[in-house]
């Protein structure tokens, strides 16, 4: 690979991107170029954060079994749209994060977003969705001891993060629609209410139905094959 096969270069990037390039982009975008640059800044920062997270995981060695489980869960996210309108991406990402770990959660969320957009259309929103879903999975992994206590905590986590996800995506919509303003944002949120409701509801339903059996299945696999 020509681009970043060099591990030294990789390391340099890993340090410069979060500490130099991202702040610089924000600074340049907000203070030097006068108009509209938050659009570009938000896009650039998202892409860089995404790259950073994903390549950060690459340092750790992951066993083949964990990798397979991640890919299985990613594929299930796409295949699992068995009930029209409802998508299980959030639910499965959360479940993966809790049982297999934050890293897998991030990968499943991010890749499921990417692949699902192959079917529903790629756009400038793809990186945002990837980052958002990835983070939902990552945090599910980090909070897993707490989340594992009860199914209802998991359901609450999935629903709340799903709502936050929607609200953030509305910010993004407004940014693209011609500059941020409180009225516009409110309008966007109101306009998106049906979508947000369906989305939260589907997260809730999927988590209620799936969290227990999927948890059992994943735990069995972990036990049987020592993942």
């Amino acid at each position: 690979m020509i681009v970043i096969n060099n591990s030294g270069l990789r390391r340099v990037l890993r340090i410069t991107v979060p500490f130099v390039i991202i702040p610089l982009t924000v600074f340049l975008g907000t203070f030097i170029v006068p108009q509209k640059s938050y659009l570009f800044v938000s896009f650039a920062v998202t892409v860089m954060a995404l790259i950073l997270f994903i390549s950060g995981f690459d340092r750790k060695k992951t066993g083949s079994r964990r990798l397979v489980i991640s890919s299985v869960m990613t594929a299930l996210c796409i295949i699992g749209r068995f009930i029209p309108v409802f998508k299980p991406i959030t639910a499965l990402t959360v479940i993966t994060g809790i049982h297999i770990g934050g890293e897998s959660g991030f990968l499943v969320g991010a890749l499921a977003a990417l692949i699902s957009n192959f079917f529903s259309g790629q756009g400038p929103w793809t990186p945002f969705q990837m980052l958002a879903w990835g983070l939902i999975g990552l945090f599910a992994g980090l909070l897993s001891p707490f989340l594992k206590r009860s199914r209802w905590i998991i359901v609450a986590y999935g629903t709340v993060t799903g709502m936050i996800f929607s609200l953030i995506m509305d910010v993004w919509t407004v940014l693209w629609g011609g500059g941020f303003s409180a009225e516009l944002y409110l309008a966007a949120v109101v306009a998106a209410i049906p979508h947000t409701v369906v989305y939260s509801l589907s997260n809730m339903i999927f988590l209620i139905i799936l969290s227990k059996p999927f948890g059992e299945k994943l735990e069995r696999i972990k036990l049987k094959y020592g993942v």
Binding site: N5, V68, S71, L76
Partner: peptide
């Protein structure tokens, strides 16, 4: 993708392999 993360690229490729397989199975 693989230039940033070979691992993510592998998971991506595996997931793409699984999607038609799972579709068939379902």
């Amino acid at each position: 993708f693989g230039s940033f993360s070979p691992k993510a690229a592998l998971v991506f490729s595996m997931a793409l392999r699984y999607i038609p397989l799972f579709g068939d199975r379902s």
